[in-house]
Nucleic acid binder design. Sequence first.
DNA 1: CGACAGTTTGAAAAAATTCAACGGAAGTGG
DNA 2: CCACTTCCGTTGAATTTTTTCAAACTGTCG
Lengths: 244, 244
Amino acid sequence: MNLSVRAEAHQDQVAGPQPQSMRAGKGAFDIDAMREHIRVSRRKFKAGQYIYRAGQAFHSLYLVHSGILKNSELAEDGRERISGFRWRGDLVGVESIGLHSYSCDAVALEASEVWELPYPAILSASSRIPELNMCLTTALAEQIRQDRSWMLTLGTLTAKRRVAAFLLDVADRQERLGFSDRHFVLRMKRAEMSSFLALKHETVSRAMTFLDESNCISVRGREIRILDKNNLRTMAGQGVSTTH
Amino acid sequence: MNLSVRAEAHQDQVAGPQPQSMRAGKGAFDIDAMREHIRVSRRKFKAGQYIYRAGQAFHSLYLVHSGILKNSELAEDGRERISGFRWRGDLVGVESIGLHSYSCDAVALEASEVWELPYPAILSASSRIPELNMCLTTALAEQIRQDRSWMLTLGTLTAKRRVAAFLLDVADRQERLGFSDRHFVLRMKRAEMSSFLALKHETVSRAMTFLDESNCISVRGREIRILDKNNLRTMAGQGVSTTH
DNA sequence: CGACAGTTTGAAAAAATTCAACGGAAGTGG
DNA sequence: CCACTTCCGTTGAATTTTTTCAAACTGTCG
C-alpha cells in the first residue's frame, strides 16, 4: 500500500501538460487502497460552498479530488485565519478527529470534487488493516509537520519573504500535480493569501509588486509567472539550487 | 481506556497545592494503559539537554512526566523557532511519525523526566489494541488543533495580546496540573517566549511591563502573578468569563 | 566579589497597517 | 449585450507597531 494518488487531467490550468498517473508527495493519501475497504462517495461543490463548518457533527474525512479548498479557523470574538489551502490529494478534516464536531471550516475556492470517507467506517477499516491505519497516522503527522513548517516561515520571515515562500509552495504543488511550476493562476484572492500569511491584503499586494519589479516574477492579477526561481528562493530563505 | 495522567507532587512550583490523582485535559495521553502493553523506560534530562535532535533516527515517542521541554524547528539557513512547550502529560515526538529521523529538536528547559515509548512497539501494540490506537490518533489530531489555535492567535493578535494569551495558556496548564493558576514561575526565558510568539525578546519584555502597569499581572522576572484574569482575557481576545 | 547570562529600558529606524482613493474585472439584471 | 453595481487589486500617505541597536540593570553562580 503506497501513498499515491492517481491524477486525472484538469482542464482549467494554465500551461499544464496532461498529467498521467503520478505520485503525490507529502500530504497525499492512498485512495485506491482505501476504496477497496470503504464506501467512498464523490461530492461536488461550487466556489464558496462549505464542505463542513465548525460546530457541525463530525462524520467524515474528505480527500480532495479536484479543485482547491481552504481551511479556516475562527475565534469566539470573530477573528479568523485561513490555516491552509488544500489541493488534490490532500486529506481534509483530520484536525477534527476525536471530536464530536468539526473544529474549523472547509470551503471550496473554486468548483471542486471531494471524496467523502465516512469516519467510523475508516476507523473500523483501519483497525482491520494495519497499512491503512499507518497511512492515516502518517497523514496526521504530515499535517503537523506542514503546519509547523509554515509557523517557522511566518514567525521568522518578513512580508516580502513570506509571499515569496508562498509562491514557491504553490509552484511546488503545481509541479507535483503535473502542471507548470513557472506559470499558473492563483486560485485565492489577495485577502485569502494575506490571511494565511498573517498579513493585510495591501501588504501582500505591495510584496507582489515588489517581487514583480525585482524581476523575480511577473504578476497580472492572479496570473503568476516565475521568472527567477533561484532569486525567489533566496528571498524565501531557502537557499539556491543549481537545478532549473 | 481514558485519556488521563496520574499526577504526582512537583516540589518546585510556586504556591502549588499537592496535586493528587487528576484528569488531564487536551493533549494528555493514557500512560497507565500504555504501560500494560509496552516496555516503558524512564529517562531523566537536565536543563539544556536534548531529548532528540532533528536528523537523529526516529525510534521513540516520549511522554513528559515532569519538567518542561521545548520543541524547536530549524530551517536550512539557520532560522529557528520554538513550536511549542511540552508539559507533564504531553506526548512528544509525534510530529516525526512516518519519518526515518526526527524533524525537529526537543530540549529540556529544566530538570525533567520523560517516559520513552519505543515506536515500533507502540505501533504493533496499537494494532492489537484499538483503544490505544484511538488514543494515539487523538493525540495527533489534538496536536494539530493546538498548533492551529496558536496560528490563529499569532496571526491575528498584536504583541501585547499575544503575550496575554500566552500567560493565560500557562495559567491554564498550571491549573490542569493542580497548581495555582494565579501565581507561578515561567520556566522559559524571554527569548524563548518571544521565539514561540514570533516576536523579539525586547518586545515581549515591553509587553510584560505594559501588562504589569495595567495591573493585569505582576511581573518580577519570571515570577508572574495574575491579578485581573478577566482583563487579561479581554486583552487576549477571549472574552470575559463570570467565574473566578 | 566579579563575571555573565538574562532582562529591562530608551531612542531611532524599519516594517507593517490603516485609511482613502482609484481603476479594472466580473457578475447581475434589464 | 450593455449598463450598473459590486468585488477585487493596487497605490499613496500618514500612522502605528515592531524591531534594532545600545546601554544599564539584576540576579545567580563560581
